[in-house]
């Protein structure tokens, strides 16, 4: 299988935060979603991939033979100064990216309804993001790297942008790495998911397989008490019922045929894994008290 990019045991140590031994790859023709809470290390991983940060150890393989020339990068904030006009952005970007096509840029400006004579400061956040995407697509990249590109956008603009990504991925040579904490967006478009939690890969795999492997349990306190703790990733206990994320759907159904599981969402995977952490912490604290 050919990969558009590969992170191999990537580690970046800042002292106060460490991106720790992260490995994943994106097969051609697919979209990989990098999820995780704020500060989990998503942007750090992307910056290491793009050479903006120097990894402490580990390696990055990027589009054999093309390197950064084949990458279209969309950061979380529009990188073009407010004083610049949209048309000027296209003019200087032509000198930055090999393979730049003025006609393609003009096509995206028209498609995204971006007026060429307007200054960047006069654009809304959604329009600025569209401008960044237009620039990223106008040099015909093979890999799109999007760092929180849909954050802060209204659902209509987000949907429009997600459609653009799906159109891009129709070419089997293309691939997308998209990081976001808006998991509903990623659930719509991703083939693979990597969940970063406190700098480490906690869950990774094909999205559909993950959502089939895990299960979401809603039950009473008494029912939850009899479930093998080894099957529980994290749980939420309330006065009127409990919810838990189960790590092995099939094993759980064999052991507890009277309890039914629902399909989890990516958000469930994130929330319950984080809660699982606090659960372990609570257990450790209780043990220390005893």
């Amino acid at each position: 299988m050919e990969y558009a990019m590969k992170l191999d045991h990537l580690t970046k140590d800042f002292g106060s935060f460490k991106l720790d031994d992260v490995s994943f790859a994106i097969p051609g023709g697919t979209i990989l979603g990098l999820i995780g809470e704020n500060g989990a290390g998503k942007s750090t991983a992307i910056k290491c991939l793009l050479g903006v940060l120097h990894p402490t150890s580990g390696g990055v393989e990027l589009l054999e033979g093309e390197g950064l020339a084949g990458v279209g990068y969309v950061p979380d904030e529009c990188p073009f100064s407010d004083q610049l006009k949209v048309r000027q952005v296209g003019k200087f970007c032509a000198g930055l990216f090999p393979g730049w096509e003025d006609s393609l840029f003009a096509h995206y400006l028209q498609k995204f309804e971006l007026p060429g004579d307007r200054k960047v400061k006069e654009l809304s956040r959604g329009m600025k993001m569209k401008l960044s995407i237009a620039v990223a697509l106008s040099h015909r990249p093979k890999l799109l790297v999007l760092d929180e590109a849909t954050s802060g956008l209204d659902p209509v603009v987000r949907d429009e942008i997600l459609d653009e990504f799906l159109a891009f991925i129709r070419d089997e040579d293309h691939a997308i790495l998209i990081s976001s904490h808006i998991t509903s967006d990623l659930e719509k478009i991703c083939d693979y998911v990597v969940y970063l939690h406190k700098g480490r890969v906690t869950i990774s795999g094909a999205k559909d397989e993950l959502l089939e492997t895990y299960g979401r349990l809603s039950c009473s306190k008494a029912d939850l008490a009899r479930v093998d703790p080894g099957l529980i990733v994290g749980k939420r206990e309330g006065d009127y019922g409990c919810q838990a994320l189960i790590n092995d759907h099939a094993a759980f159904q064999r052991a507890y045929p009277d309890l039914s599981l629902e399909s989890p969402t990516l958000e469930d995977l994130m929330i319950f894994t984080t809660r699982g952490d606090s659960l372990s912490f609570e257990k450790e604290s209780e043990q220390r008290k005893l």
Binding site: L50, V52, P79, F80, S81, L96
Partner: peptide, 18 residues
């Protein structure tokens, strides 16, 4: 200052010319 305000340096460094 323009570079700082629009976080241009990181973006420019990720361009092929670097």
């Amino acid at each position: 200052s323009y570079d700082d305000m629009s976080r241009w340096t990181a973006y420019g460094a990720a361009a092929p010319a670097g």
